[in-house]
């Protein structure tokens, strides 16, 4: 059966309304305050380290995002940890909140398709995250200019923008997850808890679980040195099920031009390489292209799940 009319009619209206709601909501203000404070702290720490240790570096600005000073982690690490929280805050009651407010049936009675509701919710959330990220990045760059006294190089800018794009995809994964939970679970509190549990497991505990699973799947054999590599690779494959590991690998490569690989490197592979020489941006991107595709794929997969569940849902609660 074919349907008349565009499924995207009204998407922009819903997305902008959602974005406006998020921008003015107290919960968004609180979470962004948290992110801003930690980010400022991390960058301030990094500036202190950089001015104390680094004499000359062609990619000084990228160091702002990756250098950590105890006890604070680096800006990139902070973002990898806190950004999911922002996305979950924006998405956990996207669909079930409409049911709870009893606005869903009225909304669906407007001349739009259901598709527009879900697309609008997702795009609205993503728009807010994009604005927040851009603001954050500009603030950090500004702080850097102020305290380091140097403008960012063009290489810095290109890598920084690529990093922003990947960060947005990473946030999109968590936003899609939160929206999927909000579609499947009827109570907003339960869906928030479910999304937060997944976040905790994947960002905090996954790093501990992955080696455990790897050692049972691929045990070490003291007589066979190759088993060390097999175990490492198994562990890495399991760790990559978490979007945070994927994001961490992309960050490491994009923000550190001298990084060559996300996996083990052998001496024969390093033959002829100038140690510490920066890779061109495109080469760095190519190394982590699978990770980037993985993040985008996870986002699309989760969104599709939410989409299918939502399309089949009965309107009456």
């Amino acid at each position: 059966m074919t349907r008349e009319g565009s499924p995207f009619k009204g998407t922009a209206t819903i997305a902008l309304k959602e974005a406006a709601d998020h921008m003015t909501s107290a919960r968004m203000h609180l979470i962004m305050l948290l992110v801003l404070l930690t980010a400022a702290g991390a960058v301030y720490g990094a500036i202190g380290r950089i001015t104390a240790t680094t004499a000359e570096d062609p990619f000084l600005f990228l160091k702002l995002l990756t250098v950590a000073r105890d006890p604070l982690p680096s800006f990139a690490a902070f973002l990898g940890f806190l950004l999911p929280l922002v996305a979950i805050t924006l998405g956990f009651d996207a669909i079930n909140g409409e049911y709870a407010r009893r606005t869903m049936s009225r909304l669906l009675a407007q001349p739009i398709y259901r598709d527009a509701v879900l697309f609008g919710k997702f795009l609205g959330g993503l728009l807010v995250i994009a604005i927040a990220l851009l603001t954050l990045w500009l603030l950090m760059t500004g702080l850097g200019i102020l305290f380091l006294g140097l403008p960012p190089s063009s290489g810095d800018l290109v890598r920084g923008i690529a990093y922003l794009a990947v960060t947005l995809a990473y946030a999109g994964v968590w936003l899609a997850l939160a929206i999927a939970f909000s579609t499947v679970i009827r109570s907003p509190a339960t869906s928030a808890l479910a999304a937060l549990s997944v976040w905790l497991v994947l960002t905090v505990f996954w790093g501990m679980i992955a080696p455990l699973i790897a050692s049972t799947i691929a045990p070490l054999d003291p007589l066979d040195p190759m088993t060390v590599i097999t175990q490492f690779e198994t562990q890495q494959a399991i760790a990559r099920l978490s979007p945070q590991s994927l994001y961490g690998e992309v960050t490491a490569l994009l923000l550190d031009p001298s990084a060559r690989s996300v996996g083990p490197l052998f001496f024969d592979q390093m033959q002829g390489a100038v140690v510490g020489a920066p890779l061109p941006t495109v080469q760095s991107l190519l190394v982590v292209w699978p990770q980037i595709s993985g993040l985008v794929a996870a986002m699309i997969l989760l969104f599709t799940l939410a989409y299918v569940a939502f399309q089949r849902q009965e309107v009456r609660a």
Binding site: E4, G5, P111
Partner: peptide, 17 residues
């Protein structure tokens, strides 16, 4: 033709939100 129908038909749900 849901869009065409919904354009001309208004719906006031039970306990509207």
């Amino acid at each position: 033709e849901p869009l065409e129908v919904k354009r001309q038909v208004g719906y006031l749900p039970d306990t509207v939100g």
